[in-house]
């Protein structure tokens, strides 16, 4: 059965349509001239202009971007360390607890994570705001970097690193000069994943944020509760555009690298 049957094509088409239609409609309606969200009143970029005059929204966007940049960067370092630990160090006291703690936030409901972190910050008497959201996001997204990097480390040929060490390279230097360049795409993917997760998060930020540190999802949420508005459609469209662009560029870069690696390997084999 080499051919792709009609039924298979149809189910893939219907599945993808289901995944993309709502987003597409949202994007189209962000260019609607009418204030009524369900009536088409002609093409307009009016709401995008409006957006840049909405100071509250712009402040929230700025807070969100800073939170996401900072937390994604710290998370990537911590998550990569955790991946190395799980991949390389098979015996140390409390390994079971460690692997459990790394995996747990991935399946834990956001409301529980948010509540528990808030209660920690309260008992530490920390003022809630920008930094508490950053700390919370680092903790809750670390597992994703670990999973992505760990799956790459599994297929990494350790003899490369050992060769460097045999030649007298210190282990940490071997990691940075040999291992890291090879697993780099996974690390970058982990960074991007946590960046977008932080950009999107509503529940954990709502629990751990304080006055003066309203993130964009919190702002969007409070507006959405009042109803669908063209401005929100416009904000969402911009966010979707940024994220899609990032993902597509990352995928293309990744593919170029793979192709180059395949070519290098072919040349080396000759």
């Amino acid at each position: 059965m080499k051919h792709w049957s009609g039924f298979n094509i149809a189910s893939v088409a219907v599945g993808l349509a289901f995944l993309y239609l709502p987003i597409t409609i949202l994007v189209i309606y962000s260019f609607n001239a009418s204030r009524l969200v369900t009536v088409w009143g002609g093409f307009s970029t009016h709401w995008y202009g409006e957006l840049f005059h909405n100071q509250g929204l712009m402040d929230a966007a700025w807070v969100t971007i800073r939170v996401a940049l900072l937390s994604a960067s710290v998370t990537t370092v911590l998550g990569t360390m955790a991946a190395v630990v799980l991949n390389r160090f098979h015996r140390f006291p409390g390994r079971l607890l460690f692997s459990g703690m790394v995996a747990a936030p991935m399946v834990m409901p956001d409301v529980i994570l948010g509540l528990s972190l808030l209660l920690l910050f309260v008992s530490l008497d920390l003022d809630r705001g920008f930094w508490t959201v950053v700390l919370a996001h680092i903790t809750c997204t670390m597992c994703f970097v670990t999973v992505v990097v760990q799956s790459r480390l599994v297929s990494f040929d350790r003899s490369l690193e050992e060769a460097a060490q045999d030649l007298g390279c210190p282990p940490w230097k071997a990691f940075f000069l040999v291992t890291l360049p090879v697993i780099w795409p996974a690390v970058a993917a982990g960074w991007m994943l946590t960046f977008t997760l932080s950009l999107d998060d509503l529940v954990i930020a709502s629990f751990t944020s304080g006055p003066g540190a309203t993130t964009l999802p919190m702002k969007i949420y409070s507006q959405v509760r009042l109803g669908v508005t063209p401005e929100i459609n416009a904000v969402c469209t911009i966010l979707i555009a940024i994220v899609s662009l990032g993902v597509v560029v990352a995928a293309l870069v990744n593919r170029r690298q793979e192709q180059r690696r395949a070519r290098d390997e072919r040349l080396a084999a000759q």
């Binding site: 950009l199 509503l202 999802p217 949420y221 959405v224 966010l239 994220v243 899609s244 993902v247």
Partner: peptide
């Protein structure tokens, strides 16, 4: 990759 909140809102 696109925001969870946005995807729910779209509905």
């Amino acid at each position: 990759w696109t925001s969870f909140l946005i995807r729910v809102y779209a509905w």
